[in-house]
């Protein structure tokens, strides 16, 4: 199973209901976004004058660049397939890709809030909420992003943005199920925002007429992977070491490492 979302630009009217519903659902700080709508154009395209929207959100990528950079404690986590009840255990840091539903999630209570994942995402889909932190592990905040509202989905509801969309422009479902509406959209040509340099398998995809797709892809596709910040590489380098340290966070090391990481960044 791989959850995915289609945004049908032929239907979207740019009303922002989705972004505000998400804010309410997840208490998203006012200046941060788990999903967003940008108005594009009116601008000239080879297909004629066009004006459309970029309703963006986490792509729950197949090879998420945000996952491997997470420096938090690695733990053994058991995942359960909500459909079959089958389980699987994996070693994960505080953010990971769920092996069953394909969503990329964050363990809020283990997140250090260092922002490495946010830096690593080419779509700018993550933010760090500094109003909350896991103080006992020296956290600076807690990273957040679109979760495809899995807790709602597990209860048989739609993601909050999908539910409120008055245009039915947001379609959610299992891309692996060929009979799902999302899979049908993919067959019709719904595309993720990818470029030669950024090709990490986005599962949020867009469908629209030629001129709107032209405007969307030329303005909103990331064309390079974020360059690794010193902080991020420091984290990555330290990671094998950290794996050895059990309960790493509680020893207060996280705080120390982060502080030095930050000062290094400043010197850059």
């Amino acid at each position: 199973m791989q959850y995915g979302m289609i945004i049908d630009l032929n239907r979207c009217v740019g009303c922002h209901a989705c972004t505000i519903a998400c804010k309410a659902e997840w208490d998203v700080p006012v200046d941060k976004e788990r999903n967003w709508v940008r108005r594009l154009g009116p601008a000239n395209t080879p297909e004629g004058l066009a004006s459309t929207y970029y309703p963006g959100l986490c792509n729950h990528c197949n090879e998420p660049s945000c996952v491997p950079v997470c420096p938090a404690d690695v733990i053994e986590k058991t995942f359960t397939d909500s459909k079959t009840g089958q389980t699987k255990s994996m070693e994960v840091a505080a953010t990971y890709k769920d092996p069953f539903n394909g969503t990329v999630q964050i363990d809020k209570d283990r997140c250090l809030g260092c922002g490495a994942c946010a830096d690593a995402c080419p779509y700018g889909a993550r933010y760090v909420n500094t109003d909350i932190k896991n103080e006992e592990i020296g956290g600076e905040g807690i990273a957040d992003k679109c979760t495809y509202c899995v807790t709602r989905v597990e209860k048989g509801l739609e993601p909050a943005c999908v539910q409120t969309c008055l245009a039915n422009a947001r379609i959610f479902g299992d891309l692996d199920d060929p009979n799902s509406e999302v899979a049908k959209y993919v067959k019709k040509g719904a595309k993720g925002l990818t470029s030669p340099a950024v090709n990490i398998g986005p599962n949020s995809r867009y469908y629209g007429n030629k001129k709107d797709m032209y405007l969307l892809t030329t303005t909103s596709t990331p064309t390079e992977m974020p360059s690794a910040s010193l902080r991020r590489s420091l984290m990555a380098r330290l990671k094998p070491e950290m794996r050895k340290v059990k309960n790493f966070g509680l020893l207060g090391l996280a705080g120390a490492v982060l502080v030095s990481g930050l000062t290094e960044d400043k010197k850059e």
Binding site: C15, H16, A17, I20, A24, E25, Q163, T164, L166
Partner: peptide, 22 residues
């Protein structure tokens, strides 16, 4: 904590606009 369209509605249904949500 949140407002939603009344699922029973035959008018707006489960949808409300940005302002409604806010």
């Amino acid at each position: 904590v949140k407002l939603e369209g009344n699922p029973k509605s035959i008018d707006n249904g489960k949808s409300i606009c940005a302002r409604g949500n806010a």
